Computed example of a mutant assay.
Amino acid sequence: MSAPVVLITGALTGIGRATAFAYARQSANLVVSGRHQDVGEQLARELGDLGAQVEFVPADVRFDADVKNLVDRAVARFGRIDVAFNNAGTEGTPGPVTEVTDETYQATFDTNVKGTLLSLKHEFRIMGEQGGGSIVNVSSVFGLMGYPDATLYVGSKHAVTGITKAAALEGAAHGIRVNAVAPGYTQTAMYERFTGNDTARDAVSSALPLHRTATPEEIAEAVQYLGSDKASYVTGHVLTVDGGLMAGWPLFPSS
């Protein structure tokens, strides 16, 4: 069986980077993408040192031409795309709904929502021609519930959840599975920015049922499951990986 061809957006940090390393250790053929050329080329070298065949393609998922070029470059290098992990995302600018502006809306939704749609558009184009494939979008537990002072982020991730379900229905007839992973609090730079300080992070960890946040590698394991044949009958699903948060633990108990 030939090595799968895996495309990862937002691969330069956090969950995307961890997922790239997880696939490299399985000798997958990798196309990794992000906006920073120097960081991307260094990542490709590190992944190559593990024995993977790797191509770095710079891309900003907010722009159709960038995403088209990314997908076409992947096919030009490896001939197909078996798994796509649409991971590029941003937390935007947290704040109350009264402070939302055109700029803050676009900064969040263009990456999280438009970027996911453009990625699906071009991945469907290729996977439809080749007779199938697996796509994993990155949502969030906040794509399933609310959070104060994060209306834009929450809204964008709810959109990704809905887009995943609709795209799964479109893709089913073509052998394309579409799922999403919904991480809870995970040890990434985004999480550090979102929480702001160690005191807040300690409070989050102590309130979670498992009393800790996730590692990016744990989320990568879930992505690999959804992308693999082990999940061959799973589509339109949003897999929470959250340490029990969505089970109803009172993270914000009333005073």
Score class of each variant (00 low, 15 high):
P4Y: 00
V5A: 11
V5W: 09
L7F: 08
G10E: 06
L12Q: 14
L12P: 04
T13F: 07
I15F: 01
R17I: 07
A20S: 15
A20W: 07
Y23I: 05
A24E: 04
R25Y: 02
S27G: 14
N29V: 03
N29G: 13
L30G: 09
V32P: 01
G34E: 08
G34F: 11
G34K: 09
G34D: 08
G34M: 10
R35L: 05
H36C: 03
D38C: 05
V39P: 00
Q42E: 14
L43P: 11
E46D: 15
D49T: 13
A52G: 12
Q53E: 15
F56M: 08
F56I: 10
V57H: 00
A59W: 00
A59P: 00
D60G: 04
D60A: 10
D60H: 14
V61L: 04
V61Y: 00
R62Q: 14
F63V: 10
F63D: 08
N69W: 00
L70Q: 03
V71M: 04
V75A: 03
R77L: 04
A84I: 08
A84D: 08
N87K: 12
A88I: 12
G89T: 08
E91V: 14
T93A: 12
V97R: 13
V100Q: 06
Q106S: 13
F109H: 12
N112Y: 07
N112S: 12
T116A: 09
S119D: 04
S119E: 04
S119C: 15
K121S: 08
H122K: 11
I126K: 03
E129H: 13
E129P: 06
Q130L: 08
G131T: 10
G133V: 03
S134P: 12
I135M: 06
N137P: 04
V138L: 15
S139V: 12
S139N: 10
S140M: 03
V141L: 12
G146F: 07
Y147A: 14
L152M: 13
Y153Q: 06
V154K: 01
S156C: 14
A159L: 14
T161G: 10
T161V: 15
G162L: 05
I163T: 06
A166W: 12
L169K: 15
L169M: 15
G171I: 06
G175M: 07
G175L: 09
V178K: 09
V178I: 05
N179R: 06
A180W: 05
P183C: 08
P183Y: 05
Y185S: 06
T186P: 09
T186I: 14
Q187S: 15
T188L: 12
Y191I: 10
R193T: 12
F194M: 13
F194Y: 08
G196Y: 12
G196I: 09
A200T: 11
V204M: 00
S205L: 03
R212A: 13
T213H: 00
A214M: 15
T215M: 15
A220H: 06
A220V: 02
V223A: 01
Q224F: 05
Q224E: 11
Y225C: 01
L226W: 14
L226I: 09
S228T: 05
S232G: 13
Y233L: 14
V234K: 02
V234Q: 03
V234R: 03
V234D: 02
V238A: 02
T240N: 07
G244L: 05
L245I: 10
M246K: 03
M246C: 11
M246E: 01
A247R: 09
P253N: 06
P253V: 08
S254C: 06
S254L: 15
